[in-house]
Design a protein around this nucleic acid. Structure first.
Lengths: 200, 200
DNA sequence: GGTAGATAGTTAGCTCACTAACGACAATTG
DNA sequence: CAATTGTCGTTAGTGAGCTAACTATCTACC
């Protein structure tokens, strides 16, 4: 459970009171912000508890998930592609530093979940691939993980989930919005984005 | 930025494809889950950038925030009260372990933001109090922080924020819902809860 | 063709959480 | 009153992330 935050949330009346002395305090914004942090942390922690049962950290799971996606569905979704299994690419896709990715791959390799082999074309690079053991681990873990996610969202019906996603999507840092070569679809559905593109 | 996660989110079509092979995969739940993690992480990271400018970590900010609230608004909101300035209480309110709170208070005390003094009644306890320097720091930081929160939520109008809060509140782990001695108000507004109560 | 700059992966050292275990003290119970 | 039980704050040690700096390699330009 990495994210820490005030579990003892202020009451709305206190915020109103405080707002009278702090002109920059927007009570409804603070309430939404605190709820967002809390819900995000709960979701994160719930997933982490599952991962821990399989001796995985969130970071290591992320690596396996990326490899699994490319492994299984790389064909169906061409922008994922079979390439991009280098540590640097994994780091960008997972949102961690290259140094952190080295450590993640180290332990995954030690545990026999992935292999590292030098790239023939570019000898600076390594190629990371999932082993059968890694695939088996994911085959056991993913149903549990997906079930947890499904349970977490079970209080909301389909249209409520869609509303939630649209609201959350509008909170993301407004991007340049230019340079979108892909045919426009509902932005809440085609949520490929930014980081994978802007290898700048 | 503590929380790490897949920045390279899967496209909805990929999820649909994957769902055909994984019966437990609920595509709309996964999309909502990923958006939640991402939005929460962005909110967390944005706040952290502010804190870092004032040489604060999220944890240290939490401590100062709790002390500030009790310091300023303890009277207006009696359930906060002037007591509860012990490390153990701060730890429970901030959602960290007592050991972590010791470290947070250590550095805050070193930097002159808080003081520690032994409790006279119960000589196991310490009392943590904010110094004038701490108050000054908060007086400079809070407007920046509140402004960041306001900007973050600016894409949503009041009714949208309310919708978001209600949806997020329903995602929180459903509590026993019993043992609520306080007169019922809108649960999305009176979001005092759980942790402060269940000192069990 | 040789040098300058960029990039890939790694290493070293940092911060900030955590758990487990400790001594000091308080509260409860025989 | 003595003993047990529980709590408070602290310490020690671990894990996961980060940045900065290094080596090796590729690319581009004169």
């Amino acid at each position: 459970m990495p994210a820490l935050l005030l579990k003892d949330l202020p009451r709305f009346e206190c915020l109103l009171e405080a707002a009278r002395h702090n002109p920059t305090l927007d009570p409804s914004a603070v309430v939404a912000y605190l709820h967002l942090l809390r819900a995000g942390d709960e979701a994160f922690a719930a997933a982490d508890r599952n991962f821990a049962r399989f001796e995985l950290s969130h970071g290591r799971f992320g690596v396996l998930m990326l490899l699994w996606r490319k492994d299984k569905y790389g064909k169906g979704c061409p922008e994922i592609g079979p390439e991009g299994r280098t540590p640097a690419d994994l780091a960008a896709a997972a949102g961690v530093s290259r140094a952190t990715m080295t450590g993640l791959i180290d332990t995954l390799e030690r545990d026999g979940m992935v292999t590292r082999q030098p790239d023939q074309q570019d000898r600076r690079m390594m190629l990371v691939q999932m082993t059968d053991m890694g695939r088996e681990l994911m085959a056991r873990l993913l149903p549990v993980h997906f079930q947890t996610v499904a349970e977490m969202l079970s209080p909301l019906d389909e249209s409520e989930r869609q509303t939630l996603v649209q609201l959350l999507a509008r909170l993301s840092r407004p991007r340049p919005a230019e340079s979108s070569p892909v045919p426009r679809t509902d932005p809440t559905h085609s949520l490929i984005l930014s980081v994978s593109e802007k290898t700048s």
